[in-house]
């Protein structure tokens, strides 16, 4: 192999194209030029890059960096976009903020806006627990039915959304089902009897051998204070109605016994600090139209 950088005849006789001047065992390499259009695009993009460096923030300096001619910044850009969005929504948002929850439900225009905004916020924030359509899941209440743990009026829903349930918010809704079994308040036989009794309240079939009499007595002494003497529940403390067919955790006896043994107490986060007041209002209206009760 020999390399001859200064070949006296660099033009290839067959193609008329210049060669690189290198020669390997008599074979020469053609030096076909790059297509002109490609080459000019390359030069143009280099020029563009310099322009870009001047116009946009680019070069790091000692204690700062070049800000660019337009002073563009990603954070200012998004702040402006959000401000434009707020301005665009302002007329309806202000109308929503000024109107009471009941007025919103009576005004078709406000209602449809609140529902649309509420639906979007619901998908982002509430759907993971309560389901995409508010259908709920085990341990997470269905919002479509008429059964409400903490009352389903617009004001109640709004308060629940703002402060949460058993959340870190000092105004959160609180109310605890004690762990009757785990804390030794009831003996296993009593738990079993009261579980049968509780199931019988909603007309579920119970074992023929079930001691409903003991169950009723245990219920009266331990459960009636929160669930009411008839087991219809008290919404102020989130004690569920036991006489309906709706069971948050399941209606089989093992699940009911587990609930009495360990206690129950679902947590809903407080959205007051995370979502703005308008969004919470829209959410309250949206949830209320799903299955709310009363005014």
């Amino acid at each position: 192999m020999s390399i001859a950088p200064h070949d006296p005849s660099p033009i290839d006789a067959h193609t008329g194209t210049a060669t690189t001047g290198h020669e390997w065992d008599g074979i020469r390499e053609l030096n076909t030029p790059l297509p002109r259009w490609w080459l000019y695009m390359l030069y143009a993009s280099i020029v563009w890059a310099f322009g870009y460096m001047i116009v946009y923030p680019a070069v790091p300096l000692v204690s700062s960096y070049t800000k660019g001619l337009f002073g563009w910044s990603a954070r200012r850009a998004v702040a402006e976009e959000l401000a434009a969005l707020t301005a665009q929504r302002a007329p309806m948002v202000n109308a929503l903020a000024a109107a009471s929850l009941t007025e919103i439900e009576k005004d078709p225009k406000l209602l449809s806006f609140a529902r649309a905004q509420g639906k979007a916020a619901f998908g982002d924030n509430c759907a993971p627990c309560h389901g995409a359509g508010g259908g709920g899941a085990k341990a997470f209440p269905n919002l479509n039915d008429d059964d409400w743990l903490w009352a389903g009026t617009l004001e109640d829903i709004s308060a629940t959304l703002t402060h949460g349930i058993r959340s870190a918010d000092p105004q959160a809704r609180v109310g605890n089902m004690p762990a009757f079994g785990a804390d030794g308040l009831l003996k296993p036989a009593e738990v079993s009897a009261v579980a049968d009794y509780a199931r019988s309240l909603s007309g579920l079939a119970v074992d023929a051998k079930a001691d409903l009499k003991t169950g009723a007595k245990v219920f009266e002494e331990n459960c009636a204070a929160c669930h009411g003497p008839e087991g219809k529940g008290i919404q102020e403390i989130g004690a569920p109605n036991l006489t309906d067919q709706i069971w948050l955790y399941g209606s089989d006896k093992a699940t009911v016994v587990e609930g009495i043994n360990k206690g129950r107490g679902g947590v809903m986060p407080n959205w007051g600090g995370r979502l703005d007041a308008g969004t919470i209002k829209a959410l309250a209206v949206y949830v209320h139209t799903l299955g709310g009760s009363g005014g």
């Binding site: 924030n125 759907a127 993971p128 627990c129 389901g131 995409a132 899941a137 085990k138 341990a139 997470f140 870190a168 679902g266 947590v267 809903m268 986060p269 995370r274």
Partner: peptide
Amino acid sequence: GNKYSDDWQRRHLHNPRDVVPG
């Protein structure tokens, strides 16, 4: 953080489809 309850996180880690069907 604090967006969902601890109970939700527990159930979701155990089997995500228990709480989010899709």
